[in-house]
């Protein structure tokens, strides 16, 4: 299973890298989303996928045997990352919207100078 997921992550990375190497800025933004998803998966995989119980402590019990639940720490990290990714997505889209309105181009190559053309 690890092998399949690793190859999947590799594929996601390949797509993400291909997308951010495009000149069209919409594709670059898509690429950033793909890469952030792929990176979350790496963190998830690094926590180990041997156990798959939900990270709950049943009512009445004081603790749970760590061996029965999936690792909660990477989950917490990824949860944070997803939310931050959402923030970045919103910001980057707003930025893109404004910048297209002002420059009227979506070709990154035409933005190689900081001065307005």
């Amino acid at each position: 299973m690890e092998l399949i997921l690793a190859i999947f992550i590799g594929l996601l990375y390949a797509s993400g890298v291909y997308l951010i190497l495009r000149r069209s800025i919409v594709k670059v933004i898509l690429g950033v989303f793909v890469l952030s998803n792929a990176t979350n998966l790496i963190i998830f995989l690094s926590g180990g996928i041997k156990r798959s119980g939900a990270g709950f402590i049943p009512a009445g019990a004081e603790k749970v045997d760590p061996a029965t639940i999936s690792d909660p720490l990477p989950q917490a990290l990824i949860l944070t990352a997803i939310v931050i990714g959402l923030g970045i997505a919103a910001y980057i889209l707003a930025l893109k919207y404004r910048y297209f309105e002002i420059t009227e181009t979506h070709d990154l190559d035409q933005l190689s100078k900081t001065d307005q053309k």
Binding site: L3, A6, I9, G10, L11, Y13, A14, V17, L21, S46
Partner: peptide, 17 residues
């Protein structure tokens, strides 16, 4: 370029595991 990046990531992920 992107395929080789993907390939290396796969290897690195497996190593990390």
């Amino acid at each position: 370029i992107s395929l080789s990046v993907g390939f290396f990531i796969t290897i690195v992920v497996l190593h990390a595991n």
